[in-house]
């Protein structure tokens, strides 16, 4: 199939409450990045440093929602991406950041900025530019419709490659045994 005559698909990626591990795993597709670049171009992404997401074919979201800015970015992606993909455990069930969910936010802030040893003059940051934290960390499907999910912490480069190539080829993405894992 000669893809070079077709217009390139646009892909955007973002990390919300995540660790960039899924993006690192994405780079694990290694030299296949060259094949990918024949077929796609990147919009907003840590790879391009473009700050806002324009109209795209595919959006990849790593990480869950722990603050108001995460929600804003997620909604921007949903509004602009024809296909939105949740990448990794944090986007899918909140992951490690969501392990604070059974604690009250005020108690956590108190513990981190006031109570611990050496924080005599500590104060809870209140710069208006800081996004407000949410009371709990949420996976992205609890806020917007998500079209596809790639589980894993992180998903392997092979799993991300499989879903991307399936989507680019117009196939329903499918991960079999060995590519689907939650850990």
């Amino acid at each position: 199939m000669n893809m070079s005559t077709k217009p390139k698909l646009r892909i955007a990626t973002a990390t919300l409450a995540g660790c960039f591990g899924c993006h690192m795993s994405f780079l694990d597709i290694d030299e296949r990045l060259f094949d990918l670049m024949e077929l796609v171009e990147f919009d907003r992404s840590p790879l391009t440093d473009i700050k806002t997401c324009g109209p795209c074919d595919i959006g990849l979201i790593e990480g869950g929602l722990c603050n108001a800015e995460n929600v804003h970015v997620l909604r921007e992606f949903r509004a602009n991406c024809k296909i939105l993909v949740a990448v990794g455990a944090c986007a899918i069930n909140g992951g490690l950041p969501a392990q604070r969910n059974h604690l009250s936010l005020s108690m956590i802030l108190e513990e981190v900025y006031h109570a611990q040893h050496g924080l005599v003059d500590g104060f809870i940051p209140n710069d208006p530019e800081l996004p407000l934290p949410l009371d709990q960390v949420h996976p992205i499907h609890e806020v917007v419709k998500v079209d596809y999910f790639i589980p894993g912490c992180p998903p392997s480069g092979d799993a991300i490659w499989k879903v991307l190539t399936d989507l680019i080829a117009g196939r329903e993405p499918e991960l079999g045994h060995g590519l689907v894992h939650y850990d």
Partner: peptide, 16 residues
């Protein structure tokens, strides 16, 4: 869940 192709938890989390 792997066997039954569960790709997401779908519902809202209780976070008990």
């Amino acid at each position: 869940a792997y066997e039954l192709d569960m790709m997401s938890p779908h519902f809202d989390h209780f976070s008990p």
